[in-house]
Simulated assay, not measured.
Amino acid sequence: MMDLPELIILDVGHGNCALIRDVNGVIVIDCPPGGTLAETLEHLSIKEILHILISHSDADHIGGMIDLLSNEDIKIHNVHINPDAIKKSAIWLDLRIALADSKKRFGTVLSKLTTTETGKFNIGSVNLEVLAPTYELILGGAGATDLKKRKLNSNSISAVIGIVHDSHRVAVLAGDIDDVGFENIVEDIHHCPADILVFPHHGGRPGSADPKIFAQQFCTFIQPKLIIFSIDRNRFNNPRTEIVEGIISSVPDAHILCTQLSQQCAAALPSAKPTHLTKLPARGLNSNSCCGGTITIKIDGSRTTYAEMALHKEFIVSQVASPICRKFLSIVKPDK
């Protein structure tokens, strides 16, 4: 019998993708380009997806959706995605066409993804909550303003998903939420503790806010024990150093993990194969550029942990030349 429920966070390079598996089905959160998601679904023999949740309309979150919708071997029951009037890209139009076609051919149900959908994603003992955006924020949408007349863009209305098990918030997947979107969350929810945080926007710029202050405020809001950056070693040089500094100053005991090994941490890749990686597909496996790679987390309420944390720490210490996740620890913890 499978050891469920579980959360799988995929190494897809620059992008986001997560799977939640429980006894009654599978939920996919974001569908980036590349073959990692399709390979993972095949590896796990997944032929049916109950819900696909798309955080927002950027290509690194929707780029793999068209191929998934056209795959006749996989049945997709529901897709939850918000409108974005400012998105003029060809891929966004192609996705809308593919969604309309899937609705006609397979009866795929389309709906928005707002806080009002919380409670509709029960696939067993795991419940998903939509922490953002609110319905009234989506009524303005990207290109408009929020209720305090702050400018909204695609990242401002990114969905933020909480994963709850046994009345305990296990994880928050923050999409690409920026400073304006975060301010709206804080105004609606004053505190949102969770053990695991997939940090917003791959650790890149959080809009117009100071990156260090944004990271401090976000981590104070979540108080995570494990922080994950979904990054590509060869793109954008994420996570930003100021973001990491803000995290460590706010939650110095949190474990930081990047899916791939940032060039900031190691100009050259390790020669030895890491021993802490799962057997699941990961974008960085062939090039040996994984840091945390694709990670699997057994969901177990307040007892949820990342089982390979000690092995990942050992990898960072022994094989990574200058890990930015440890750069500021001596400032915060001078005795260690």
Rank of each mutant, 00 (worst) to 15 (best):
T145D: 06
L41N: 05
P200N: 06
N238I: 04
A282F: 01
S111T: 06
S318E: 13
G293M: 00
H80N: 12
D84W: 01
V198T: 09
A38K: 14
D232L: 07
R205M: 12
L7M: 13
A159W: 01
S208E: 13
A267G: 11
H202I: 00
H51R: 04
E136I: 11
L311T: 06
P206W: 04
I243E: 08
P270G: 07
Q216H: 10
H201A: 13
G207R: 07
V26T: 14
Y306D: 02
L147K: 15
E42C: 09
V332S: 15
R326N: 13
A174E: 05
L128C: 02
L257E: 03
A38R: 13
D11G: 04
N16M: 11
P224L: 06
P252Q: 06
E42G: 11
I9K: 06
H202R: 11
H165R: 03
Q260A: 00
A194Q: 05
P33I: 03
Q260L: 03
E72V: 15
A171V: 09
V26E: 08
L7Y: 12
G143L: 01
L95V: 04
P281G: 03
K151S: 14
Q217F: 08
G15I: 00
D30L: 03
I316A: 07
L152S: 06
I81E: 05
L137V: 14
T40W: 05
G284H: 03
L137G: 00
G15R: 03
A266S: 14
V317W: 04
H201Y: 12
P252R: 04
A59S: 13
E308Y: 12
C192K: 02
D101C: 07
P133I: 11
G64V: 09
R105A: 13
G204K: 07
L69F: 07
I49A: 01
L68H: 03
